[in-house]
Nucleic acid binder design. Structure first.
Length: 306
DNA sequence: CGAGCGCCTCACTTCATTCG
DNA sequence: CGAATGAAGTGAGGCGCTCG
């Protein structure tokens, strides 16, 4: 039996015999004698929460997921509520609820203190945009001039607007039961997740869809996958570029078009879409082993007699 | 048994791309 | 411009096989 060589594989092996508390688990995984509880908690979340094979139990212990679907309801914070879709969507893609999110911010790093200045959520269902929510947000900090130049959002515009904490319930309501979708989803996810956690103690959870990744798989001929290029490819006009509502609606329309392309290729359910997105993109180049195999190919298996 | 070789996996690095 | 992320390249090391 081979030894697991990655930290997550080591965690999986340890959890095979049953659930463990974060301190015990992370001490074993990291091969250290002791860890502070909060440090172990953060390490476990960082290491395991993105892997569907792990779940965090209400008791705070970590365990192996019974099924892949159950992992999407994983709770990643102690004693806090999760939002987002409660489980992996099933059935036809037409029945899946997508919440296409776009945020404008004061910078690029929520950890460094950058905040949301505007958020828009376009809800998509049945191949159509069914609702759009847009709200300017008081970031409670100055907006750098180059950001105002880019987004045309000034301090005067947001000064009298609600803070994110005040609009958080409305955001939660619109994200619940939906697949969090965005162009370069990790960016918007980070900001919304950080603001919800900081504001009302909610942790963002559930399925997530990145339309950049979708474009990489479905539109390999497109030289760049920026929102400008993708929307231009589909002939979608962005009413107000670099404003949350304009970008969210345009992204939602691009999503609908890409879902149709996916459907034409036989991708008609959320699990099928996840499988499609897990396949290597066309741009993937050959590994060293691949190159060697190409240089000295084996005969096709049908023709090869040992 | 040990050297040599080829194959494979994994960790790390580099680069491209996205966002504001 | 900077931050973050993912894809791809690279090299080290493990493993199994063959042969002397």
């Amino acid at each position: 039996m081979s030894r697991p060589t990655t930290l997550s594989a080591r965690a999986a092996q340890r959890l095979a015999s049953g659930p463990l508390d974060p301190v015990t688990l992370m001490c074993d995984v990291c091969k250290v004698d002791r860890l502070q509880a909060d440090a172990a908690e953060r390490m476990a979340v960082a290491l395991l929460s993105s892997h569907p094979e792990f779940v965090r139990l209400p008791s705070g212990h970590w365990a192996l997921a019974a099924t892949p679907a159950s992992a999407s309801a994983v709770s990643t914070g102690p004693g806090r509520d999760d939002i987002g879709s409660e489980s992996a969507p099933s059935g036809s893609l037409l029945d899946v609820n997508f919440a296409v999110v776009d945020v404008e911010t004061t910078g690029t790093s929520p950890i460094a203190g950058d905040k949301i200045t505007e958020i828009a959520i376009a809800q998509v269902r049945g191949g159509a945009v069914v609702d759009v929510y847009a709200q300017l947000v008081n970031p409670q900090r100055p907006i750098p001039p180059y950001i105002t130049q880019l987004t045309r959002i000034s301090w005067e515009m947001v000064r009298d607007q609600p803070t994110f904490r005040e609009i958080a319930p409305a955001v939660v309501e619109r994200l619940a039961g939906h697949v969090f979708t965005a162009h370069n989803a990790a960016f918007d996810w980070r900001f919304v997740g950080e603001e919800l956690d900081r504001g009302i103690g909610h942790l963002l959870a559930g399925p997530k869809l990145c339309t950049v990744r979708l474009a990489r798989v479905l539109l390999p001929s497109l030289p760049r996958k920026s929102l400008d290029h993708v929307t231009r490819y589909f002939g979608i006009e962005i009413e107000a570029r670099h404003r949350a509502e304009g970008d969210a609606v345009a992204t939602a329309q691009a999503l609908v078009r890409m879902l149709r392309i996916a459907a034409d290729e036989g991708v008609d359910s959320w699990p099928a879409l996840e499988r499609l997105l897990s396949t290597p993109t066309a741009k993937r180049r050959l590994t060293a082993s691949d190159r060697r195999r190409r240089a000295f190919p084996l005969p096709a298996s049908e023709d090869y007699i040992a």
